[in-house]
Design a protein around this nucleic acid. Sequence first.
DNA 1: TTGTAGGCGTTATCAA
DNA 2: TTGATAACGCCTACAA
Lengths: 340, 340
Amino acid sequence: MKNMNLKKITVHDVAKQAGVSTATVSRVINDNDAVSPELKAHVREVINELGYRPNKAAHHLRSGKVKRVGVLFADIRNPFFTSVLAGIENYLHEAGYALILGNSNEDAKIESMQLQAFLDEGVAGIILSSVTNSGAQYQQVLDAGIPILAIDRIPRNLKVDSISIDNVRAAKQAALHLINLGHEKIAFIGGPEHISTAYLRKKGYLEALEEHPDIKPVIELGDFRQSGGYQATRNILAAHNDISAFLVANNLMTLGALQAFNEKRILIPEQIALVGFDDMPWATSLQPPLTVVAQPTYDMGKIAARLLLDRIKNPDSPIQQVTLETELIIRESCGGLRSA
Amino acid sequence: MKNMNLKKITVHDVAKQAGVSTATVSRVINDNDAVSPELKAHVREVINELGYRPNKAAHHLRSGKVKRVGVLFADIRNPFFTSVLAGIENYLHEAGYALILGNSNEDAKIESMQLQAFLDEGVAGIILSSVTNSGAQYQQVLDAGIPILAIDRIPRNLKVDSISIDNVRAAKQAALHLINLGHEKIAFIGGPEHISTAYLRKKGYLEALEEHPDIKPVIELGDFRQSGGYQATRNILAAHNDISAFLVANNLMTLGALQAFNEKRILIPEQIALVGFDDMPWATSLQPPLTVVAQPTYDMGKIAARLLLDRIKNPDSPIQQVTLETELIIRESCGGLRSA
DNA sequence: TTGTAGGCGTTATCAA
DNA sequence: TTGATAACGCCTACAA
């Protein structure tokens, strides 16, 4: 009834009120060319006075420019994602960009639908943790002039900026930690081989063992989810009775392993030493606190967003592959500190 | 060099190729009026043939319609959020809506900036877990004709659709569980009082105690984060030496409490019984597995999205306040099952 | 049932 | 430095 005044205010209203042309208003909005400082100030005043807000759809349509980024993750329910996303969101927000979120749910079909949706919606760039390992299906996005930033999982043969950790080195370091502690039967729970992080972490584990030929690999592959870690752990426990240490290649699978250990009343670290991936909130709340390979998740998100916006501003600069340091945080799940 | 053919295809191209007018093409796109079936089929063929995709910015500008929803959470880093978000994303994606994500980070200033950004960006509706407890600052959004769906935290005095759990009942049930187990010194770790869930859960705890006048409340308020739960637990432990049970009103604070118990080598459930909020992935991986008040987070997200889209389609239907059932999942952190 | 034409709010071109 | 004007791609009276 009383909302008489909610008809949208446009450049025309501002122009009329300020006694200038719409062109001038537009120039002021975009802080563009050389509008005389006095005029600029005056127009700004009128803009505030009227509470004018530019229409982004019209801006987009006319100029072709958008301040909007698509973020497409393979598994939105993994807490690893939450932290990375928070970093991305923080950076984008401060840069005045909107964040469009998608979940491919580890499904290549859905992934390509989501990418298409991003294109339809109009995004200036895309941050992607890809489902598959080959980069072919992303070419049409690139051809449309939309840059992609690959995060965490980096498809082969895709010439785009990327940010990840050194997965081989991280896993190798964790495995060597267990070896140096004297373990000779070390099981590895990995993920689906088509996921680059899974493949590379397994490689790191194997590289560590190659330096110690007397230690034979024991490998079981899960699905990077809790249930998969649980099942893989049970399988290993059933097939071997002499394993003294586990290296688990992902956060949720580590929870699954713990669940299996608890059920069998296996004590950590007395009976089995455990190293997990990702320093998640619960790591310090477990008893014993968990030794983990920590990734700088939040910073990873921030840097990813920064790299992408750089690319958007500068489409022809050389491609960057950023690798972040991981840290092996030694707590008590491999023993040693407990007696201290 | 070779991208000659990436000039955008428009309704005009389709119209020309199909030998019809742009109006007809538009009607076919929107599956609208009565275009003769044959013509419709023919135009559709041409659309596929040319790979035509409607320009959403133009559509939005001209028609005023958008298939885009803003989601604004108070703390994007809380894993509770991840699960709710996944539910929202799933529903929106299937309905052909894009999801714009924002994080207010428990800051009312940022919250209103984000809301303004949503308005500027153009959204058809907003899902909001609000930072403050009073609804005044949301009126301008509502006045702009954009519906809000309040989720989890429901501001007072705001006449909008909402979805939440019965926080009073949930906390009361948890407290009564501890009382029925024979505990007479039960500490409660709550959250900031201006957050509705925090306030209501504390109320539930107090209501339970009112039924047992011999039990005196012991309350410490944290910040809903891990460090807050840790500190609150330490405070209680320092001030009382006869507490036999803890009820912690949020997931991350429960992790903080656990951390404090571990540090002091306090055994759960032998020395202290513990009930937490939210059935998070780690609950079953803890030793002992955690007794919790479980919220249907994923479904909460799905239902939230559905309610909002209903509202968008039907702006004048009566306001709905949906309350979801919680479940007290009894595991082993209050004792009892361990010997089984 | 189909077509014509004007305009959504902005920006870019051109002229003044 | 500023203004008039024509698009951007689409939708929707209105006319046929």
